[in-house]
Amino acid sequence: MRHAMHNLCWILHKDLLTELRSRGAWSTMVLTGIVVAVIFSVQSEAAAAYKQQTIGCLLWMAVFLAAIPMMDRGFAIERENGCWDGLRQLPVAGSVIFIAKLAANVLALGILECLLMPLFFVLSSVPLPGGAGPLVLVALLANIALASVGTTVGCLGVGRRSGAALVVLVLPLLIPVLLAAAECTRLTVAGNAGEVYWRWLQLLAVFDVLFVAAGLVLFETASEE
């Protein structure tokens, strides 16, 4: 167990270093988010109520479009450098590699959202009456689902030829998660984080459990060459 934890921390450290050093990927990711935020915010004629209704949907689409190519790129770089083959030859269980990569992707998504969320809310002047707490909870649950599907499908290497392929494959699988996250965000912005909000949050949690369990089962076979 201690050995597995040590391996997990080591892979997580390596992945986070790789992520943080790939400045080109981060600038593309953040720019994608900024472009969506700016287009949404410059609709100065749009009513405040309309912006409140749509901010969740656009925020999560921006996160999705920015994040999924990043996850695929992470695997592509490892494959190009032969790092992936080296990693698979180490006496480390596939589930440990999956959890480490999942954690790295969740953290990377968290950093991306720390930049995008304030930007969306500041630029569009949409208030957040209940504070950031309920939104952080939504982001955490949505990130786990996004990262688990992105990690499993990215590992298959289907998008090796074009990153767009991965977006096409992953979007249908993640529509329920994106819908739930957008709906939770809309309810938070409306200051209505009550029973309905918790029901959507439960749905997110169910998808987290399902996708992480499926990832743990599938990662070993998906990562075969």
Binding site: L173, I175, L218, A222
Partner: peptide
Amino acid sequence: VEEPHRRARVGAALAILGSLD
């Protein structure tokens, strides 16, 4: 995907993930 066994793995993984919906 061209290689039959890789194609089978990709199809299986995506179908299992898809069936969760």
